[in-house]
Design a protein around this nucleic acid. Structure first.
Lengths: 195, 195
DNA sequence: ACCTGAACACCGTTCAAGT
DNA sequence: ACCTGAACACCGTTCAAGT
């Protein structure tokens, strides 16, 4: 008589949750399908039902990463009030916080050739990028960003945030330095304000 | 009678060269010490003399990556003439080219927690960052960058370049888009030129 | 100093079989 | 539909021994 039901019931979610934690605490090298199966209390072959291979699990992790980053950005904006520059600063802060706590996950999200790996991953990534497009247009109207083609400005903004996040995640920039970096970036993007 | 000498003679370099190629052509998942040893014609335990473990090889790869990126930047500057803005554009172009051809290597160079992994890697990374400091000061004098603390501007410039490179390496931005992105970035950094 | 060969524990993946 | 258990090929790492 087994002390757990034959069907786990929620194996896919359990694997992803545990994988995200292992990734955060021990890095990607420590992430193994067999180990995850062990921690979930299923056989090593069970994950195969939910993820075709290890790469599929990593893709799914990146996918949820994009969704969570988007969610945390929205929360940051809501807490920042009406001022566009404050919103921009808040989004940058949320992005940096994400990089600080989940640097290895960010690697999975923006690693080489990640854009076209799976349909779900691409879709999640594009959702975030589309959201940035909306934000850029709003912030242009509010005067926190200079005029110009929103699509081009959007890519430049994402690149800047991702670059700052990359420096933070790789431990080349500390928390205090990151704040200064965000300030400098916001000033740089602000329409013609530097002396 | 062996058809090759007992001592390889140049195993460390041979392993690194082959590893860089495999990384470029097949990605990091395909990189195995045993496979590299096979291709070099030595036993699977031989690489141990030169790299304590797999991570040490990856660190060494990242280290040579920083050296090569610096070298390619210097070459780009020399080919750009005296104009500071042309030099800035050339450096950005070299960085993007590096990201295009060696995206997986760039992941190793800027992945989570890479800054403090080995002394050699940290030193190589700091050499490139120091070089950016010199460039920023020169470009500030030449009018391609706004005045202000060079150390802060340096980080913002590196972040922007690294962010653009990240979008390129992950296939979220194509070559033509990358050119536009560089143009926009140079314009953004140019002292008060946007309308 | 540098490399070999055997050994160990671990992993991803496959597949026939079970519930 | 979901999971098990055995099997296979591969890997990183260790170590006594060889040249």
């Amino acid at each position: 008589m087994p002390d757990r039901p034959y069907h786990h019931g929620n194996l896919r979610t359990a694997l992803l949750t545990e994988a995200e934690r292992t990734l955060r605490e021990q890095g990607i090298e420590a992430l193994s399908l067999r180990d995850l199966a062990r921690q979930a209390g299923v056989s090593h072959a069970a994950p195969r039902r939910h993820f075709a291979d290890r790469q599929a699990l990593l893709d799914a992790l990146a996918e949820t990463g994009f969704a969570r980053l988007g969610e945390e950005m929205r929360v940051a904006i809501e807490g920042a009030g009406e001022d566009c520059e404050a919103q921009l600063r808040a989004v940058a802060g949320a992005y940096v916080r994400f990089a600080t706590t989940d640097g290895a996950l960010l690697d999975l999200m923006f690693g080489a050739k990640t854009a076209t790996r799976s349909a779900g991953l691409r879709a999640a990534s594009e959702r975030l990028f589309t959201e940035f497009g909306d934000l850029v247009r709003r912030w242009q109207r509010g005067g926190a960003l200079p005029p110009g083609e929103p699509e081009r400005l959007r890519l430049l903004l994402i690149a800047t945030l991702q670059g700052i996040a990359s420096l933070v995640a790789s431990d080349r920039v500390q928390a205090a330095q990151a704040d200064a970096l965000i300030t400098d970036a916001v000033t740089l993007f602000a329409p013609c304000r530097h002396p």
